[in-house]
Simulated assay, not measured.
Amino acid sequence: MASALDAALARRSASKVTDAAPDDAVLLELLEGASRVADHASLRPWRVIALRGAARERLGEALAAAAGAEGEAAAKLAGKPLRAPLLLAVVAVVAPEHPKVPEWEQEASAAGVAHLMSLLLDDAGWGVMWRTGPFTRHPLVAAVHGLAPDERLLGWLYVGGLPGGRRAERRTDHVAASRLTTLF
């Protein structure tokens, strides 16, 4: 059995995926694992929305409208959510003015779910890429997702099959040494 470190070191974003996608049963199993992310006061300040089929088209239309795009530019924006058969919208469900957990920490917990879910999907053999953009928090985009006033869209995990059924080569660059500072 591979370790969590092995899975993390093997993870790569997949910018191109096939039309295969995990079903809801697989998503629920992986999301159960992702739900174990650090969560101060056990608020579970997140939810995940699966967008398939026509829901991706509605999202594309909302992105184009949010941008005020027309013609070719609108078509390009509208096509972005069609790059994968499944989009998982990661939403922070914020309890404003919580006495123990500030809003930024609640969003950080939701972001942790997104990252852990991407790691688990990758480890299960799916292609995944976390995408955001300038209209992630636009009211038209929020409406497509049916977000409540206390909910904030963090972005989408684009999920699909891996072309050729293979993972990208493992990264060989080492960045940790340049990012660690030790204070005494």
Rank of each mutant, 00 (worst) to 15 (best):
G160N: 05
V113A: 05
R11D: 00
A111T: 08
A7Y: 04
P99F: 10
E29F: 10
M129C: 14
A108C: 14
G127C: 10
R167V: 03
V113E: 02
S13M: 06
E70T: 12
R58V: 02
A142S: 14
H40Y: 07
V48M: 04
H40M: 08
R11P: 02
V17N: 06
L86S: 10
D39N: 12
A50P: 13
S13D: 06
A25G: 09
D122M: 07
V91T: 01
A34S: 05
W156H: 09
M1Y: 12
T18D: 06
S42R: 11
L88D: 01
I49K: 06
F135Q: 04
A111Q: 10
G164I: 11
H115N: 13
L162T: 05
L31K: 06
W46C: 04
L162K: 08
A75S: 15
P99E: 06
V128G: 01
S178M: 12
L59T: 00
R12W: 02
E57G: 11
A55W: 00
L116H: 11
G165K: 08
A148K: 08
E169K: 11
P45F: 04
A64D: 04
W126M: 03
R131Y: 02
M117R: 05
L27K: 06
K16L: 15
R167G: 01
E29N: 12
L140P: 00
W156G: 00
A142N: 11
G160V: 01
Y158G: 02
A34E: 02
V128E: 00
A84I: 03
A69P: 07
A65Q: 08
G160Q: 02
F184V: 10
S118M: 09
L154E: 07
A95C: 13
P134S: 11
A177D: 10
S109P: 03
L86C: 13
S42A: 15
L87H: 00
R44S: 13
A54D: 05
G165E: 06
S118I: 04
G53S: 07
A66C: 08
L43I: 09
M129I: 15
A124S: 07
A38I: 08
L43E: 08
L154S: 14
S13E: 05
A7Q: 09
V113Y: 01
P22L: 12
L43V: 10
T182K: 14
L31S: 09
L77G: 03
G164C: 12
W104L: 10
D19N: 13
R131G: 01
R166C: 14
G155N: 04
S109E: 05
E97I: 07
